[in-house]
Amino acid sequence: MAKRIYVAYTGGTIGMKPTDSGYAPGDNLMALLSEKLPADVMKSLPEFELFEYEQLIDSSNIRPDNWKQIASDIAARYEDYDGFVVLHGTDTMAYSCSMMSFMLQNLNKPVIFTGSQIPLCEARTDGLENFVGALSVATDDRIKEVCLYFNGRLMRGNRSRKLNAYWFDAFDSPNYPWLGRADIHIELNEQLLWQSQGKETFLLDCDSDPHVLPLCLFPGITAQWLETAFQQPYSAFILRTYGTGNGPDQDQELLKVLTDASAKGKVIVNQTQCHRGTVRQGSYAAGSALARTGMVSGYDATPEALFCKLHHLFSMGMSPKQVREQIGINLCGELSQ
C-alpha cells in the first residue's frame, strides 16, 4: 500500500514571495509546486496532502503558541498518515524541531522538518530538492523521531543547529552524527536512529509565555548585572559559560548571586559557549565553583534543545526540583549519555 504523507506548510522562505520590503510569506504553495514540478515528476512523488496554515509566518516570529499549533496538528492526524513533513522557516527551525521532539515522544512514524534558503519562486531555489528529499525520508518506516532534512543531510531534530545564513549547507549537528545522507541513494545510519521507548506520548501542553531566559558570560561580567537578570520573571536561566562549563571562580560576589538565585528556586543550567563539546563542571576549579552554587549541567545539548526542554518541563507543571532532575535525563535523544 502506498504511503500517505501529511505536509504542514507553516510559512518560511520556501514559499515566500518578493515584496517592497523584502521576501515575505506567500500563500498557495501547492500552485507554486505544481508550476515548478512537471506533472510526471509530481506523479512519481510519494502521495501527499498539503495543508496551508491560515496565518503563515516568517519563522523569526515563532512563539510557543505556534509550537502548540504544529504539535496539535500532527497529533490530530497521526493515525491518518504514514509520515509528516513540516515546511518551516530556517531561522528558528532548530527550535521547532527540538520542541516537537519533546511534545511528540515515542513516535512510531517520521516527522521531518525542512525549508529552503532561496524561495521556490526563484530560479536557483534549493526548496525543490529539500521538499522532495523530506517527502522521501518521511516514507521510511525505520525513522521514528523528529528529524531535520536539509541539503541532503538527515539530522536528529533536537541535535540540529542553523550555522550558516548564506550556504545551502545551512544546518549541521555538532554533537551527534548525521542520521543519513541523500546522494544517488538515501542511506541511513540505522544504529544512530532513536528507538521509541513505548507507546506514542503526546504532551501538548505548551505555555504561551516563555519560562526560560538565555544568558551569556563575558569577560568583565559583574554580579550586579547577573542579579538584575535573575530578577526577571523567568523560571529557568541558561548560562552559557566558557569551555567545559567554566566561569569566574575568583568573583565571590558573582558566585553568591548564583547561589542565592538557585536557593530561591531558580533553575540555572550550565551550557558551554563552544560550538562542539559538553559541560563537565568538575574538569576545572572554575567549573567546580559554578557547580557548588547549585547550577546543573546541560551536558552537550544544543542551546535550542535546552531552551525547549526547559520550556516543555515547566509547561508540564514540574517543580524546580523535578526540572533539575530531568535536565540530565535523555528524554528523546537530545543528550549523549
Rank of each mutant, 00 (worst) to 15 (best):
L226D: 02
L226H: 03
E227K: 06
T228V: 10
A229I: 00
A229S: 13
F230S: 00
F230R: 04
F230K: 04
F230Y: 15
Q231R: 11
Y234R: 11
S235H: 14
S235N: 13
S235Q: 14
A236F: 03
A236Y: 05
F237I: 06
I238M: 08
R240W: 07
R240Y: 12
T241V: 11
T241Y: 06
T241Q: 06
T241M: 08
T241A: 06
Y242H: 09
Y242D: 11
N246W: 05
N246D: 14
G247Y: 12
D249R: 12
D249N: 14
D249H: 15
Q250V: 08
Q250I: 07
Q250C: 07
D251M: 02
D251G: 01
Q252V: 11
E253R: 14
E253D: 15
L254P: 02
L254E: 05
L254Q: 04
L255P: 08
K256G: 07
K256W: 10
K256R: 15
V257Q: 06
V257K: 03
L258N: 10
T259V: 01
T259N: 15
D260S: 10
A261V: 13
A261N: 05
A261T: 13
S262D: 10
S262A: 15
A263Q: 14
A263M: 09
K264A: 11
K264I: 00
G265V: 09
G265E: 12
G265Q: 12
K266Y: 04
V267M: 10
I268D: 08
I268C: 09
I268R: 07
V269K: 01
N270K: 06
N270R: 07
Q271L: 15
Q271I: 06
Q271V: 02
Q271D: 00
T272N: 06
T272S: 15
T272V: 04
Q273G: 03
Q273M: 08
H275Q: 01
H275D: 02
H275W: 07
H275N: 00
R276L: 03
R276E: 11
T278F: 03
V279K: 07
R280V: 00
R280G: 00
Q281W: 00
Q281Y: 04
Q281E: 10
G282R: 09
G282D: 13
S283R: 03
S283G: 04
S283F: 07
S283M: 11
Y284W: 01
Y284V: 02
Y284F: 09
Y284L: 02
A285Q: 12
A286E: 10
A286W: 00
A286M: 05
A286H: 05
G287P: 07
S288T: 14
S288P: 00
A289H: 08
A289K: 08
A291F: 13
A291M: 14
A291W: 10
A291D: 12
A291K: 14
